[in-house]
Design a binder for these strands. Structure first.
Length: 420
DNA sequence: TCTGGGGTCCTAGGACCC
DNA sequence: TCTGGGGTCCTAGGACCC
C-alpha cells in the first residue's frame, strides 16, 4: 500500500504559522510578480476566490473581506517543506518527495498495522513537529492514493485520512471522482473522455484497454492500470537526476530597450549558472527566449527562442552570459514591448566530468576559482553582492513583491522575537 | 498598471546514414 | 512505368504535473 501525504493549503499554512492571529481568517498567496493567486486558506476558498485568479481582478473581494495577501516566499516554504519531509521519513522505509508539499510513502512493510491508525499518528506527529496540517490518502497504487487524498479534502477534511483497500471502497472512490480530477488527466484529455461518454474515474476504468492505449498513449495506459489497483508507476527513492535548469520571469513592467532586456536576461542566466554550480552540474546547451505580453492582444506580438550549443560544457556565469548575449543579438527585434525572458540550461552533466577541448580558449582554472569566490561572497553578503557588468543595477525588470513576509526560519535578522 | 514559474514525458516528422 | 527499409538523431509541439 502507498500513502500520499499532502500539506493542506501549503503556502497559506506556512504564512499562518508565524501569524497565529490569522487562524480561521482568509489568506491568499500570490505568484511571482504578485500576478495571480496560487494558494488560499479554506476561508479564502469559501469567499469564492479561484485558484489562478489574477489579483487585479479580485482586488475588491480582497479588500471587502479583509483578506490577508502575501507575495510568495519560496525560501520560507522550502525550509518548512524540508522539515515536513524529515518528519515523514521516520514513518516509512521509502519516501518519495514528489513536490514541495507532497510525498509518497511506501507502507508495504507496515501491512500488519491498521493503516488508518498509522496515518493518524503520522498526521499528528507532523502537526506537532512543524505546525503544518496534512491530509493522507492510502491505496494500492499512486493514482488511487491521489484519488483517496482528494476525497479526504472533499469529504473527510476533519478526519484527515482516507483509505482505499477493498473492491467496494475502490468502486465508491472511483465513482466519486470526475475524470478531470484524475492524476494525469488535464484539460485536453478531459474533453476527449467526456466526448466519448466517460465522466468518472469509474467509467474510465471500465473503458476498453485498446481505446485508452490508442487515444492516450502509454501514459494513459499506465493511469488506466493504476485505476484498477495495479501499481505501475515506480516508487522513486532517489531524486532523479536533473535534466534541465531554467530561470524565466515576467518583468515588473514591459521593456522595449535591448539593453534593458539584456540586463534581465543576464541576471536570469547568472541565476541558472549559480544553480548549476550549487548542484555540481555543467551544461552543454543553453536555450534563451524573449516574448511580448500575450495578454495585450492589441499590441504586436513576438516570441522567439534560440538554442545555443556550447563548444564545451560549463557552469561559469561570465561564459554563459556571453553566450546569452550573443543569442539575444540574434533574436531581439526592436519595436516590441517585451515582458518576459529566460534562460534554460540543457544537457546537464556532472561538473567533474567536463571534457576539455584542446582548442579551448577559456582559462577554466581561473574561471572556476573566480566562481568559487563569487559564490562564497554572495552566500555571506546576499545574493547579488558580486555581479557581472551586464547584470547592471536597474530594477525595472525586477519582480513586484509588495507583500513579502520575512524569512522567519532562514535569516537570522528575520527570526521572530517574542516579548515576555 | 496588473494575468506564475519550473519541470517531465511522449509523439511525429524531417534529415541523414548505410 | 517501376525508386528500399531500417535505424538514429534532432526538433517542435503537445500534454501533463505542482
Amino acid at each position: 500500500m502507498i500513502a500520499l501525504v499532502d500539506c493542506n493549503n501549503f503556502y497559506a499554512s506556512c504564512e499562518r504559522l508565524f501569524q497565529p492571529r490569522l487562524h480561521n481568517k482568509p489568506i491568499v498567496v500570490l505568484s511571482n510578480n504578485d500576478g495571480c493567486v496560487i494558494a488560499r486558506s479554506d476561508e479564502a476558498k469559501e469567499l469564492g476566490i479561484e485558484m489562478g485568479a489574477p489579483s487585479f481582478l479580485i482586488e475588491s473581494i480582497l479588500q471587502q473581506h479583509n483578506v490577508s495577501v502575501f507575495s510568495s516566499n519560496y525560501t520560507l516554504y522550502g525550509d518548512l517543506s524540508d522539515r515536513v519531509m524529515t518528519t515523514l521519513s521516520q514513518f516509512a522505509d521509502q519516501l518519495e518527495v514528489y513536490s514541495i508539499d507532497e510525498a509518497f510513502l511506501n507502507l508495504t512493510a507496515f501491512r500488519q498495522h491498521n493503516l488508518t491508525d498509522y496515518a493518524h499518528t503520522i498526521r499528528n506527529t507532523v502537526m506537532q513537529h512543524t505546525g503544518i496540517p496534512v491530509s493522507i490518502g492510502i491505496a494500492p497504487s499512486k493514482t488511487l492514493a491521489k484519488i483517496a487524498n482528494r476525497l479526504v479534502k472533499k469529504r473527510n477534511k476533519q478526519l484527515g485520512v482516507y483509505c482505499i483497500d477493498t473492491m467496494q471502497q475502490m468502486e465508491h472512490a472511483l465513482k466519486n471522482t470526475p475524470v478531470k480530477d484524475i492524476w494525469g488527466i488535464g484539460g485536453q484529455y478531459t474533453k476527449l473522455l467526456t466526448r466519448h461518454g466517460f465522466n468518472t474515474a469509474w467509467d474510465v476504468s471500465r473503458a476498453p484497454e485498446e481505446w485508452v492505449r490508442k487515444n492516450m498513449s502509454v501514459m494513459g495506459q499506465r493511469m488506466y492500470n493504476e485505476l484498477k489497483g495495479t501499481s505501475c508507476i515506480a516508487f522513486e527513492d532517489m531524486p532523479p537526476k536533473k535534466k534541465m535548469v531554467c530561470v524565466a520571469r515576467g518583468f515588473g513592467k514591459v521593456l522595449s530597450e535591448k539593453n534593458e532586456v539584456m540586463e534581465a536576461l543576464a541576471n536570469f542566466t547568472a541565476m541558472v549558472a549559480a544553480k548549476l554550480r550549487s548542484e555540481q552540474l555543467a551544461t552543454n546547451t543553453i536555450q534563451i527566449f524573449v516574448q511580448t505580453n500575450a495578454h495585450r492582444s492589441n499590441e504586436p506580438q513576438y516570441f522567439r527562442s534560440l538554442t545555443i550549443h556550447l563548444p564545451e560544457a560549463t557552469n561559469s556565469t561570465n561564459e554563459l552570459i556571453r553566450y546569452a548575449r550573443k543569442g539575444l543579438e540574434t533574436i531581439y527585434r526592436p519595436g516590441y514591448n517585451y515582458n518576459k525572458t529566460g534562460c534554460t540550461a540543457m544537457e546537464l552533466i556532472p561538473a567533474a566530468e567536463v571534457q576539455y577541448n584542446i582548442f579551448d580558449k577559456e582559462n577554466r582554472v581561473r574561471n572556476s576559482k573566480l566562481m568559487n569566490v563569487v559564490d562564497v561572497v554572495n552566500r555571506s553578503f546576499g545574493k547579488d553582492a558580486v555581479r557581472f557588468a551586464l547584470q547592471g543595477f536597474s530594477t525595472r525588470w525586477k519582480l513586484r513583491q509588495l507583500k513579502l513576509s520575512p524569512c522567519y526560519t532562514t535569516r537570522i535578522d528575520e527570526v521572530l522575537t517574542i516579548k515576555i
